[in-house]
């Protein structure tokens, strides 16, 4: 569960996120949608502790990210929007490094990595330097590394960008299974079809403010609109 309470973040005098409140409950996939530059990445970075909010707090499974960052980070697996990873490590070395940090026991590590790497068809490349990977392969490496410790809360920033169709399908299925197991998935996207099909609830952010939040049916409010037309109405009143 993630609780974002009155969070504000300003870069200089530009307010990127302004008094944001939202909750990602256990057992649900929460889609965070909004136009480019709306503040999705900024919000996600504050959730995982990469940025400090100017005001407000983020709680992950009841743990305040600012007050007890290490415990909060243990609960999360994070995939950034741009997979900047250490090019001079091999994929496996990177995953091992992340696993060490999350204290994944030796006994289960090999099994989990094999499962994830097979699912994303990355097994053969894990011994190569990340330098030689394509964008999608880097994305997959980060995904595997973030999920090896089986975090209860997944925080994914535009995770489907750059993935091939098969890997995207696999990931969507994994997200569904994870949420159905009583865990939370918080992910941002600007592909509305994905949000429509996959999410239990969505939040729409425009210019740093949450303008709508709820299940798809609640948002449509009985009207037989697609999410797309609802979204376009929202951002261009």
């Amino acid at each position: 569960m993630i609780e974002i309470r009155g969070v504000r973040k300003a870069y200089g005098d530009h307010t990127a996120v302004d008094g944001l409140n939202l909750e990602v409950r256990d057992g649900e996939i929460f889609g965070f949608i909004g136009p480019n530059g709306a503040g999705k990445t900024t919000t996600i970075k504050m959730t995982v502790g990469l940025l400090r909010p100017n005001a407000g707090a983020v709680l992950v499974n009841g743990i305040d990210v600012a007050a007890d960052p290490l415990r909060a980070k243990m609960e999360m697996g994070y995939v950034p929007d741009t997979p900047d990873v250490y090019e001079k490590l091999t994929g496996m070395q990177f995953i091992n490094f992340m696993s060490d940090a999350y204290q994944v026991p030796t006994g289960v590590r090999g099994e989990r990595v094999r499962e994830l790497a097979d699912a994303f068809e990355l097994t053969d490349a894990l011994g190569d330097l990340i330098e030689s990977y394509s964008h999608g392969m880097r994305q997959k490496t980060v995904l595997i590394a973030a999920l090896v410790h089986q975090p209860r809360v997944w925080v994914l920033d535009e995770p489907l960008v750059g993935l091939d169709p098969k890997a995207a399908f696999t990931l969507k299925a994994m997200m569904r299974r994870h949420a159905d197991g009583g865990n939370s998935v918080f992910f941002s996207t600007h592909i509305l079809e994905v949000a429509e099909k996959l999410c239990d609830r969505v939040g729409i952010i425009v210019k740093g403010k949450l303008v709508a939040c709820g299940t798809l049916d609640e948002l449509r409010d009985g009207a037989n609109e697609t999410l797309e037309s609802f979204f376009l109405d929202l951002i261009e009143p």
Partner: peptide, 28 residues
């Protein structure tokens, strides 16, 4: 064409965090 290293990558034994950091640093 990418060079394919002969050996297959394997999940390593879990080591202390500091050692893992040191390994990563020296490689980089």
């Amino acid at each position: 064409k990418r060079r394919r290293k002969g050996h297959k990558a394997a999940a390593a034994v879990r080591i202390g965090m500091v050692r893992s950091l040191v390994n990563k640093e020296t490689a980089c």
